[in-house]
Amino acid sequence: MPLIPKVGRRKFRVKLVLLTIGAFLWIGVILRMIPLWWMFITSIKPAEEVYLIPPTLFPHRPTFAAYKIIFTLSGYISSTGAYIAHPSWMTYPMYVYLKNSLIITFGTMILQIPITALAAYAISKLESPRWSRILFLFFIGTMMIPGQIALIPTYLLIQHFPFPTRSIPYIPFTKIKWPAFNLFNTYFAVIIPAGFSAFYFLLFKGFFDTIPDSILNAARIDGASELSILRRIVMPISKPVFAAVSYFSFSAAWNSYMWPLMVLQREKLYPMSVQLARISRLLSGQTMEVRGREGLTEDLTKMIELGWSWNGLMAMSIVESIPVFVMFIIFREYLMTGIKLRGFK
């Protein structure tokens, strides 16, 4: 509710204050729009125009060529008649990275939300008080501990699943190694560790705690099974919390960068975030990959000849941002109600 009272709003001084506030907010909005405008404008520039000094604020010849290039990625025939393949920095067309991002994001959501919600429901409504206190600490204890400490052990764990060590240990008294799964360079390496989230567990539990036991008991007396109580009573009431968690879970997985960078080290598996960062490094001339400086300049020249440089990267950024924006629009109403839930206090 506005803090400046309605009755006073006619006075000149108050009007001036309101006008200043409005101006401040609109200036902020404009400042915020500049990078986004610049992203959009760059993405619809043809390759020659990207490197103009001074840059054009409105493209002379707007074109969607950059979008087409990143989604098709074919080579070209040079003036000497030789076929020039695409540089090694982007071996696959955009939809491969898009697909990886989608698999990782929806895989995470499909695994994480039901597992976390079921655990929270069990703790909140089913388990006996003594056990639920112990298990509650077991579940949220990791939230109190900064996650970076587990970074390297998890990285080792991923490479031979149940053993967080450099190499697989031997079965005692034999020369046989324990069976172990190598999750490295698979989508599971990203999806499974995210399968349970202490933070969403708290959100869910906070909400389930507000559902009165008497409703559930009434259903039990009427002979409803626990599963149908969950499906017919708990799920419909809990829509806002599921919506809020879905949104958080989606954006966390979609934006995740560090962990995919560490455990997915094959270009075919890169999600969009990793690939975007990689291309940006190429375009600003920072290289740490095998080809070195000459290879880099050569690749850059090739890319510009093919018709994309920063315009292609900005097109990729827009493609990456669309799902985030769409999810924001879809969940906005739920978010505003969902955040007010007790768990998030």
Partner: peptide
């Protein structure tokens, strides 16, 4: 409740507590 919690317990043990302890 134990059935509902078991996947969460497994993941929380292997990817939550085990790496922290191993560190």
């Amino acid at each position: 409740a134990k059935i509902f919690m078991s996947p969460a317990i497994l993941i929380q043990f292997f990817f939550g507590w085990l790496p922290i302890g191993m560190a």
